[in-house]
């Protein structure tokens, strides 16, 4: 039996009927066609599906869509404002923090939470803060620099 939910995503309210077993990530991708949030694993390990739930980073495969009822979600599609890229989006571009781009949305969402809690993180703090997000392309080297780039811009 489907369940009615009401979720605000990137500032827009959506009313949908969903199966109770549907994961939040599938709700975003399949129901709302917000395909910037990716699925990279089945075990909540890789972080490709990271979004913000009421401002906090969350792996959207760890939550059911029905649990998001009444909540506010931000996805990668909601990070730029008025056509202006978020400093992290700009940082990843400037510092070559992405290659294939598949992990990038999750990385940016996790890094945004990290910077919200620590506006001037050390390299080690950035590395520890991102250890729940896998990247197979960049070796993390330029991702660290991208986050540092954004941190400087956001001060």
């Amino acid at each position: 039996m489907k369940v009615q939910i009401s979720v605000t995503v990137n500032g827009t309210n959506y009313q949908r009927e969903v199966e109770p077993r549907m994961l939040l990530v599938h709700f975003l991708r399949e129901e709302l066609s917000l395909t910037g949030t990716h699925v990279g694993c089945d075990t909540s390990s890789c972080g490709a599906c990271t979004v913000h739930l009421d401002g906090k980073a969350l792996k959207s495969c760890t939550m059911l869509a029905v649990q998001a009822n009444g909540k506010s979600i931000t996805t990668i599609e909601g990070m730029a404002t008025n056509g202006q890229l978020h400093p992290l989006q700009e940082g990843f571009h400037q510092e070559h923090g992405l290659q294939c781009g598949f992990c990038t949305p999750g990385m940016i969402m996790t890094a945004a939470d990290l910077l919200a809690n620590n506006s001037d993180p050390s390299e080690q703090e950035i590395r520890e803060g991102l250890e729940g997000n896998f990247c197979r392309c960049t070796g993390y080297h330029n991702i660290v620099k991208s986050v540092q780039h954004a941190a400087k811009k956001m001060v």
Binding site: R29, S33, L34, T35, G36, T37, H38, V39, T75, I76, E77, M79, A80, L85, Q89, F92, H93, Q94, H96, L98, C100, G101, F102, T104, P105, I108
Partner: peptide
């Protein structure tokens, strides 16, 4: 040169196979 492909990936506009719905 900074990469021309970055913008679609940093904004969630990449189009991977699983993103395609026919």
């Amino acid at each position: 040169v900074k990469r021309v492909e970055d913008k679609r990936f940093t904004t969630g506009q990449g189009r991977y196979t699983d993103d395609i719905k026919l």
